[in-house]
């Protein structure tokens, strides 16, 4: 699985954000994970913990915000959240809907503390 590589990229990006603020240290990272991101949140938490254990980042807060799949109706253009594969459009009931979002894999925020 690639969760270790993803966790490493998250840590790196989080540290880079904190370094842009001299005099502060990184205390937390928040990520946004889409249902179709191809990343498993449990495996990601595990990888994150494994990478930070025993380092100065050991106590780092790590939060995952899960995002549902989003579909767009090809008939009326309505965009809606959907956990089903081809959920019909809630407005016009058309079944011709297309996946348009929910593959998010984003660094949403970092938390820093002044030192």
């Amino acid at each position: 699985m690639h969760e270790v590589a993803i966790a490493a990229a998250i840590l790196e990006a989080g540290q880079a954000e904190a370094e842009r603020r001299p005099g502060s240290k990184l205390t937390g990272i928040g990520v946004r994970l889409g249902a179709l991101s191809g990343v498993d949140s449990d495996a990601l938490r595990f990888a994150f913990a494994a990478l930070t254990a025993g380092t100065y980042l050991d106590a780092l807060k790590f939060e995952i915000e899960s995002r549902p799949r989003r579909n767009r109706c090809e008939r009326c253009g309505h965009e809606f959240e959907s956990s089903l594969y081809n959920a019909p459009c809630p407005l016009c009931a058309s079944e011709n809907t297309l996946f348009v979002g929910g593959d998010d894999l984003e660094l949403a925020w970092v938390e820093v503390e002044e030192i």
Binding site: I6, A9, I10, A13, E17, R21, S24, T27, G28, G30, V31, L105, E106, L107, A108, W109, V110, E111, V112, E113, E114
Partner: peptide
């Protein structure tokens, strides 16, 4: 403690 919004793709380098 300060929370700073980042809103950046994790794999932005890729």
């Amino acid at each position: 403690m300060t929370v700073i919004p980042v809103e950046k793709k994790v794999l932005s380098e890729n």
